[in-house]
Design a protein around this nucleic acid. Structure first.
Lengths: 246, 246
DNA sequence: CGAAGACTTGACGGCGGTCAACATTGGTGG
DNA sequence: CCACCAATGTTGACCGCCGTCAAGTCTTCG
């Protein structure tokens, strides 16, 4: 069975229901509130949303990887977060039709598309949805605070954390097998996310590989020594996990 | 008239009503929803909330400066944001009774204290309050994204931005006269906020002063060349202002 | 007057940025 | 099948921003 069979299905059958904000919930009454307007495949490099454009839709990334980024003064771009299957493209889209950042697909993938107006209406009438939205907002706040704390961390701490964050989030989604997962990011993406040059990212990754902590090849990364990475990151397993709780 | 006369007043008479989340709004019906349970003065250094403690209250900082910070591995602390009069101590307190950071008063000040349960109830029954909360959340998200973008900025860019942010926020509150404002932060606070050492903060501040962009003395800072600071920060006046829109 | 805290200054060193050359890979068209 | 090119990653040399350490000044406060 292909993931994309979801295209024709109802939200009730969503294979990642437990991860997403948009799931209508249990019960016949709620089921009628499955508001998905469209299922849309996107190709690698597709700009899902462009900074400043008006937009009347809300999206959940159903499949593939995406980045949320800002264009900075003189060409540089800052990656604000990496989006994985199940992540909302942007919670603020529920309230505003314009955003301060862009979102781009990094791999072929798929979106579930909702009407902003319908989501706003559901927010008013469905208390459990409102509560879920609050939980998602709170989590985004915790994650953002941790990124701000990166300001005082060294390159290797930032990179170890970055890898661990993706590792844990992918593991929640069942996308890790024996420490290994698909890894479509280039070194310049890691640099753009962490404020480092791709060259220095390469140096640190090489060091981590030489020390036996990770392995990587084309489009693939393996976490070989989880505890060792945690130590370099200056983090604990519990701290990492609680960041992502809802 | 002393600011603290608010202690005895009703939220209707709040002098910073336009800035705050907690204001009950217009009309007799809404006025009855002024939920403030207490007005509490705090001294310099008072820990308003300690990371991880359970808490059944929600707070608005009514007067004074405060910092929101995390204790990091080995003694260092990361300042996540500087709170000014009118700012909520923490929006996530509306949903969770435990937070991942602490909040401390930097100067003598005052809090308006609310019951979390009562605020949650108001959130369910008052759509305009829910909308206002969404707006505050969205703004915090924009501000956090800008801090994350600091990862790729130099020390002087970060510091210029930091000063401009405080300048604009204080000006909104009528706390700037002729470019000058009270500035209770020490250099080590700026360092803890931006991931720099206090020594290097001192170097950059001295440079900014020597170039005629700012002046500073004990507990006071003057923005002498707003445009020059904007240029160093790599920002525009509009970008700074729109960050803070509601 | 003594002590603690904040700021300044100078010397030194390392982390990470910059630049250039080169290897490798994958995609495209001949 | 091969030539070509673009994108990615690797390596090495060099350097500058910023961290570290230490000494000294000034203010504030007990």
């Amino acid at each position: 069975m292909n993931l994309h069979s979801h295209m024709n299905g109802h939200c009730d059958d969503c294979p990642i229901a437990s991860l997403v904000l948009c799931h209508p919930g249990e019960g016949a009454e709620l089921r009628s509130k499955a508001l998905r307007e469209a299922y849309r495949r996107v190709h690698e490099g597709f700009v899902i949303y462009r900074q400043g454009d008006p937009c009347e839709h809300f999206f959940t990334l159903f499949d593939g990887w995406a980045i949320r980024y800002k264009n900075m003064s003189y060409g540089h771009r800052q990656i604000l977060s990496v989006l994985l299957p199940g992540d909302p493209i942007s919670l603020p889209l529920l309230r505003s039709n314009k955003l301060d950042f862009s979102v781009m697909a990094l791999t072929p993938g798929a979106l579930c598309v909702f009407s902003r107006a319908a989501m706003a209406a559901r927010l008013r009438t469905d208390p459990s949805f409102a509560g879920k939205l609050e939980a998602f907002c709170a989590r985004e706040g915790r994650v953002a605070d941790e990124r701000i704390a990166d300001l005082a961390r060294s390159a290797s701490e930032r990179i170890a954390r970055f890898i661990l964050d993706l590792f844990v989030r992918l593991r929640m989604r069942g996308m890790v097998a024996d420490g290994a997962f698909v890894f479509p990011l280039r070194q310049h993406h890691i640099g753009d996310a962490l404020g480092l040059t791709p060259i220095h990212v390469g140096r640190v990754l090489r060091q981590l590989r030489d020390d036996g902590l990770i392995e990587f090849g084309r489009n693939r990364l393996v976490v070989r020594d989880y505890q060792g990475l945690l130590k370099i990151a200056g983090a604990t397993e519990e701290a990492l996990a609680s960041l992502l709780d809802l």
